[in-house]
């Protein structure tokens, strides 16, 4: 059996009454939702609406002011949680370690936790980098990569963890349309193959409606709408409609001098 393809059973993620303020500024104002095991849940919302802050809470990097986050019923703030469940966050910026090569970054988790022999780690790293189309970049330093390549390397680093819950912060924001489609397929394939619970934050409407089991739209730290892609399309709320249908139109009338 190929050890890197062991099934990772998705976990159930439950968020209850989540509040967070930074120096008096309320960023999250009472979020409640559940992501079922194995689901692909897409979170959309305008810039600055608190999506990245929410993801940091979901993986335990930030402590909420009020409310709780439960992974299969266990609070994320308990110290044992990290040993009990495998979770990964793909940062918006990638957050690769700049002092290590791409390959070392991807192998970091296995190396630091002594989970595999160096030879096996090298094989897994090459495989995961090939999965995201970065096989040639293994010896490169993060500073030598483009924004989109950094993000793909960060995804490879998350895949190595074989997570039961994976959080993507704008996985396609720096990719060209073609790579975005490939990325969407990879997110979907990973979810199908391993059953990992996937939460994707994105502004990319094609991606959202292409892969989501359910979509939530948030604004100013509150959920405006939540449901299947079809129900979100039908949703009658001026803000949600505007956000989902906004389109760039070139001024067709050029006033004559």
């Amino acid at each position: 059996m190929n050890p890197s393809h062991q099934p990772a059973y998705g976990v159930r993620l439950e968020v209850r009454g989540l509040h967070k303020s930074f120096d008096g500024q309320e960023v999250l104002r009472g979020l409640d939702f559940v992501v079922e095991p194995g689901e692909i849940f897409v979170l959309m919302g305008p810039s600055g609406s608190g999506k990245s802050v929410l993801l940091k809470h979901l993986i335990g990097l930030e402590a909420p002011d009020a409310g709780e986050i439960l992974i299969n019923g266990d609070s994320i703030m308990t110290p044992e949680i990290a040993a009990k469940y495998r979770m990964a966050l793909v940062f918006q910026s990638g957050a690769l370690l700049n002092s290590l090569t791409v390959g070392e970054n991807v192998g970091l988790y296995l190396r630091e936790h002594r989970l595999k022999t160096p030879a096996e780690i090298a094989r897994i790293v090459a495989e995961k980098l090939a999965d995201v189309g970065l096989a040639d970049a293994i010896q490169k330093m993060p500073a030598e990569l483009s924004g989109g390549m950094k993000k793909r390397a960060a995804i490879a680093r998350a895949l190595v963890i074989e997570p039961q819950l994976i959080l993507y912060d704008e996985p396609t924001s720096e990719l060209d349309p073609l790579s975005s489609v490939v990325m969407g397929q990879e997110i979907w394939k990973l979810n199908q193959r391993t059953g990992v619970t996937s939460l994707v934050v994105t502004h990319d409407r094609d991606l959202a409606f292409g892969i989501a089991d359910r979509i939530a739209v948030i604004d100013e730290g509150r959920i405006l709408a939540i449901g299947t892609p079809e129900s979100i399309k039908q949703f009658k709320d001026p803000l949600v409609e505007k956000f989902l249908k906004a389109d760039f139109k070139r001024e067709t009338q050029i006033k004559s001098l």
């Binding site: 335990g60 979770m87 910026s93 690769l96 370690l97 970091l108 988790y109 630091e112 936790h113």
Partner: peptide, 13 residues
């Protein structure tokens, strides 16, 4: 500043 330490923590390092 560049969230590398956050990344370490998400990897339980």
């Amino acid at each position: 500043v560049y969230q590398e330490i956050d990344a370490l923590r998400t990897m339980n390092i």
